[in-house]
Each structure stands twice: as structure tokens, then as C-alpha cells.
Design a protein around this nucleic acid. Structure first.
Lengths: 212, 212, 212, 212
DNA sequence: CAATAATCGAGACGGTACGTCTTGTCTTGGG
DNA sequence: CCCAAGACAAGACGTACCGTCTCGATTATTG
């Protein structure tokens, strides 16, 4: 466009709450998409997965249900997408050479994050995936699968470096570390996730519980 | 009871299927309750928690919604009650003196049961409890809490008997054994629960993964 | 957990207006009947026919639904019975010898009574009788039939006494006097029932509206 | 009134019978509206007002309850709308110059119509309006108010033309003619509405009942 | 630059389920 | 035996959300 037009083009009027935008014509896809993800992220962190409906997202975001259904095939897909735009999970995994220290650090961070609203939302997503195959698949593809792989790779390197016994199964170790944390959070029978718990997770596995 | 008669007397074995019972008046509470629990159990094992609604249960069981709401305050409570009348979980925990063997046996049984429709239903109940506090409380009260306690007691006895190190935390061990199984089942990123997995769980914890 | 059932035990919620009477044994029939009629009368005068249900009457009066259904076969019958115990309508009809004066007096009284809550309740009963044959029959038997007969008899005496033309139909006159008042009250298209209206009713019929 | 919406107005005679229309998306408003009104009209003429429920209308017409509640705020509004689409009442009022003949003709027609299912439905609507203010207002707005006005205007013209005495109240005459017919129909204590009755209505008022 | 094709918002639509209410029948357990 | 208390099946109530759809408005893309 060669004119003296002052159009902001890609300006995304972030603002709070719902963007105004009166009129029913077409809007840039990214703008619409951003509105949706912001709304979903807010909803899922503040009120949880149970109250997240297409209807509410449409109302709160100013985006029509038609558009929502066009881009997100299910409630789970929408929730997951909004969730990851809200929390931006850190997938990096330190490698200082000391696998026990690295694991401990990583697990403490993980336990801490799981105590936030974002952590609770993740638990609800895992919960919902038990009855929603689409959500289960999306959750695996977008998050848990990558995290498991990163952890397994770090542990495999440690095993090659001789820091973990050769006959141990590093994939099982992931379940006994992260899985144990998930379990305490999802089935909290009078137990809590604290620093001592995380320390015990690592100690038990590396030292064994059989008396010397 | 003065006789050697073992007859159950008032046992109302209404057979399978839904009894007709036309007419709208009052029926004995146990009869109504039995109809409901049988229906809910069937539904939850065959179609899962997602399709369990008060409406369907009322239709399928011939019990009115009024009655359902009177006795079961929420969908979760109804589901849980029906589930436990359908599966009758074995809570017994062997104690042969060899804790490692006992644990292994118990975990193999548990893993096996979790592969059945009843196991999948339980996972869905745990999943649903993430967004339903009532269900979470009921699930803990009726099942998980007792199971955790039994396991902890067995492990504590082993610790006192010198089979487990004194500085180990037996409550954490529960999370690293049963919790690991739950996690693999609920977040199945290309991993499966089989006999080798269960063996590895025990081996890792008792022997430790640090090279000697 | 799931049944939050169980009897309320010793909870004695006396409620307002209701006689206490705890315990389930038999009470004298007249006492029960009086409680019901008092409750129904209060309800119908204060809230109208629409909100009168067996359920509410049972709750408010402390009389069981069983007993209500035993004595009153329909909502209309119950309403009507309660109504007439609350209003005790005056059926007497003066006969001073001057039929025009007697009619005018009677109609003015009637119009006045119809402006009270009792009058409004009667209109609702007539309204309800359009869709409830039982109520229609009961209303006629208990009230309107007797009233019409009294009026017709008074008018017939006047006709015999030569105060009303022989070729007039006194039964039709009832419709054109009382019926006109009912109609204005039931279909109030901007018209009201006042003293002038009642006077006009009588004047039109006795004097005729054709110019002399 | 009844549609509190931009009524389509244009008569849409979508043929008889119920169109199947599979699929859940939006249908043209006029089509939906026509289905509803046809169903309500049939129901109210065949079974009366008492059995008219939103539930039945939804089932019979294939229109969802949501839609019914969106357009018709109450059962009365729905009933009335369906009624007037079924009966299309003739409001015309002859004026041959002879008011007595015109009135007689009009009243005979009215009495005749009131003997049909449509007439009985109208009586039930009037009855229901005694306990339903919304229905009362709608009934007045859509029908009775206009009818009363037409009659009053015809009578007023006759009064100006000297066919009715100047001190008569033409509004009261309406109650003593039409109102008397309504009353006999709504409170039928052994009396019937026939041609002689209608003749007597007119004769009494025009000639007076006082002996000459 | 006007016509056309996409794509948006808004929201109506047929459904299903919700949780509550009333109906008329029936069972239980006092008095 | 009769009553209260109230459980029961049935089914209507009015609301929420689902996923599909029509409609009109606006924009971007074409001729």
C-alpha cells in the first residue's frame, strides 16, 4: 500500500478483558486467535477446566463459536492450547555432569511449579484426558511426551557415563520420580508434596532402601 | 440364630436385568438402591465415566431422578458407589515375612487389575476428582486412603523388622510404587505397564540405581 | 457418605401457622380437617389459586398427602372447600316487595364483595373450572347453582307480582345482571365495576334502552 | 406481544403436516414459527389448554424448548398465539342502520362460534387469565379489547342516531350482551346458550322488563 | 475501482442433561 | 385400624451448553 495510510497493520490491541471491535466483518486471524488464547488461559488458570466451555470462551473473548469450532476441534484441544500460551513451560534440562544434583534440581522446580494455578490446571488436563482421547493425544503430543523424552535422555546419558547402573531402566525411573509427584498431587490422601518428599524420591532410588 | 441353617432368608436376589415394577408408589429402599448400583456399575464398566449421567441412570434403572438426587448428591458420588459395588476391590495385603516378595506380588496383582475395565474406570474416577472436590473426598474416604494406609503399614512393619532402611520414608515408597503405575496408566507416552515394569519398580528401590 | 439420607431424627420444625403435633399416630378427623381448611383458606386468599398445591397444603398444614387425597379428590375440590370455609358467603336475599330496590341492593353488595381477596379467589375458581370438570361440578353444587336459584326465585316472585313483564325470561335476567359483573371482572378491558355500573345494569333492564 | 421479537409477519404457509428437517443447525425463523403455531393450534383445539405444555409442544412440533422459551415467555402467550393462528376470529361488525338487527345477528354468530372447539378454547384462555397476568394482558391486547371497542363504537353510533336512549351507557350494554353469554358458558348451572337466549338478551334491553 | 469470495460476529436451531417441583400411589411405622 | 411421614415413578419446569447452521457485515482479493 503506497498511500499515506496510518494503519497500524499488525497492531494487536491487547488491552484488558474483551477487545472492543464492533461490527461483524472479518478480522485478521492472528488477532482473533490471540484473543481466544488469552481468554482461555485466563479462564483455565482462574477457574479451572471444569468451567471452561466453548460458550463462555465465545462470550468472554468476543470470538464467535463458529470460529472456535473451526480451529479447535474439542474442548480439550482448546484448553490445552490456551494453557500452553499462558504458562510457557520451561522444558530445558540442566546437565552439569552430576545427574543426582541435576535431577534433584529439576524435580524441586517441577514440584514448585505444580503448586501454582498452572500446575493445578495441568492436573485437571491430565484428569480430563482419562475420558477424552483427543485431549490425551494432544496432551502427549504437546507436552508430556517431550518432557518424558528429555528426562529419559538425561538419565540415559548418566547411565552411559556410569552414574546409573546398567541394568536399571531409565524409563521406569521417570515414573518413579515425576510419576510419584503426579500421584501425590492427584490422589492426596493426607500427604503433601514438599522439599523433603522430593529429596526422598531421589535418595530412595539412588541409594536403595535395603539396609547395608 | 438357633439352627444350623445358612439360608440368607431375606436375601433379595432380583436376578439380572431390570425388574419391571409398574406403578408409581413406594418401593423398598434396598430394592431401589440395588437397581441403581447395578445399573451404574454396568454403565461405568462398559462405557466409562464420561457417559454416566443422572438422566441415563434414571432411564436405564427405572429409578426416578428425584430418588437419585436424594441419595447421591453428585455424579461423582453416584459413580463411585456404583463402581465399588461392581468391583468389590480386594484390600487384603499378604505378609509372608518377605516384604520384597509381598510387594512384588501385590503390585503385579494391582497392575493386572488396572488393565481391566474396572481399572480404567478407576483411572477415570481419579481423573474426574481433579475437578470435582466431592468426588475427590469420596474417593479418598472409600478407597485410596485405606489402600495407602495398608501399604504403609506393611512397609512400616518391614522397616521395624530391619528389611527396609530406617532413614527411608515408607510413605514416599508408596508413591514410587503404586504412584508410578498410576502415572504410566494416566499419562501413557509410549510406555506400557507390564511385568517387567513392575519388577523394575521394586528392584530400583530396593537395590538402588547407583553402581556398586 | 453417599446417602446423606437418614431420618432427620429429633428435628422438629414447627413451621409457622402449623399446629405442632409431633408423632405419627392418628388424630381426630375434625381436627385434621380443620387444619387443612384453615391452611387452604389462608393460601387461597393470600396467594391465589395458582400457588395452591397438595404439596404446599400438606407442608403448611402438617397434614399428610395421604389424608388430603383421601378426602379431596382434586385440587379444585380442596380449593373450593377451603374457600367456602374462609369466606362464608351470604346467600340471603332480601324481599322488601320492591324487586328493583332489592336487586340493586343485592348487586351492590355482590360487586363490593367481589373486590375483596375472596372475590378474586372466586374468579380464579371460575377460571380454573374451565379446564377442570371436577372443579366445575363442585363449584356449581356448592355455590353458583344455589345463588342462581335464589335470584331466579326472587325474580319469579316479582314476575308473578306483576313487577316484571310476563314475557321476560327471569333466568336470562340473572345472566344480564350477575353475569355482566362477572364478565367485567374477568375480562377487564379498561372497564371497572363501580356503583354507577351496577345502577346502569338495573336501569337498562327495567327501563329499556329504546327511546320513548 | 407474543413474540417480543422482530416478527416475520408474512404469512408462511409451509404446507400441512410436519416437515422432518434432520440436522441440528439453524432453520429459517418463519418455518420454525409456523411449525409451532400449527402444533399449538391443533393441541389447544383438540385437547384444550390444560394439556398444553412446553414439553409437549416441543415434542410434537420438532422445535426445541430453547426456541419456544426464546419467543414465547409463558405458556399463556404460546397458547394465545397458537389459538389465534388457528381460529382467525372475524372481527367485522355489520352496520345496516338497524342496530337491533345488527346486534342480534352479531350475537347469534358469536354464540354459535362459542359452541365450537375454538370457543371452548377461548373460555379456557379467559379462565387461565384469572391466574396469569401475562395471559390476561395478552388476551386483552390481542382480542377482547378490540372486540369490545368495535361493539361500543357500533352502539355509540346507534345512540347518536337516536336508536338508543341518551342516558344509557353503551359500555354497560356490552357487558349485558356478550358478558351474559360468557357467563352462561363459564358458569353453566343448568342453563344453555341457544337462539332463544340470545333473542331474550336483546329484547330485555331494548324493550325493558317493566310492564307497560 | 467495483465486483467477488472469504471469513468473521452474532446467534438461532435441535438436542441432551441439568437440578427442582408437583402429582398421585404406595410403604412404613407410630398411636 | 387410621394416621403422619415421606419414598417412589412420572414427567414438566426453565436453564446451560453442545455442535451445526443461517444470516448479514466487513475485509481482502480479484477482474
Amino acid at each position: 500500500m503506497q498511500t499515506h495510510d496510518a494503519a497500524p497493520a499488525g497492531a494487536v490491541t491487547t488491552a484488558t478483558g474483551a477487545p472492543p471491535h464492533r461490527g461483524r466483518g472479518r478480522r485478521p486471524a492472528e488477532e482473533v486467535r490471540a484473543d481466544v488464547l488469552r481468554t482461555v488461559g485466563d479462564l483455565i488458570l482462574s477457574e479451572g477446566l471444569a468451567d471452561l466451555t466453548f460458550e463462555r470462551v465465545a462470550r468472554s473473548s468476543g470470538v464467535s463459536k463458529t470460529t472456535l469450532y473451526k480451529w479447535w476441534p474439542s474442548r480439550g484441544a482448546l484448553a490445552l492450547d490456551g494453557y500452553f500460551h499462558a504458562v510457557e513451560p520451561a522444558l530445558a534440562f540442566d546437565d552439569t555432569g552430576d545427574v543426582r544434583a541435576d535431577l534433584s534440581h529439576q524435580l524441586h522446580s517441577f514440584a514448585e511449579v505444580m503448586g501454582t494455578p498452572g500446575g493445578r490446571a495441568l492436573l485437571q488436563l491430565v484428569g480430563g484426558s482419562q475420558t477424552d482421547p483427543d485431549l490425551a493425544a494432544a496432551l502427549s503430543d504437546l507436552y508430556t511426551s517431550a518432557r518424558r523424552r528429555l528426562a529419559e535422555e538425561r538419565l540415559a546419558r548418566a547411565q552411559e557415563a556410569g552414574q546409573i547402573r546398567g541394568d536399571a531402566d531409565v524409563r521406569v525411573l521417570v515414573d518413579q520420580l515425576w510419576g510419584a509427584i503426579y500421584y501425590r498431587l492427584m490422589v492426596p490422601d493426607g500427604v503433601t508434596v514438599d522439599a523433603a518428599f522430593v529429596d526422598a524420591l531421589v535418595d530412595h532410588l539412588f541409594d536403595g532402601v535395603t539396609p547395608r
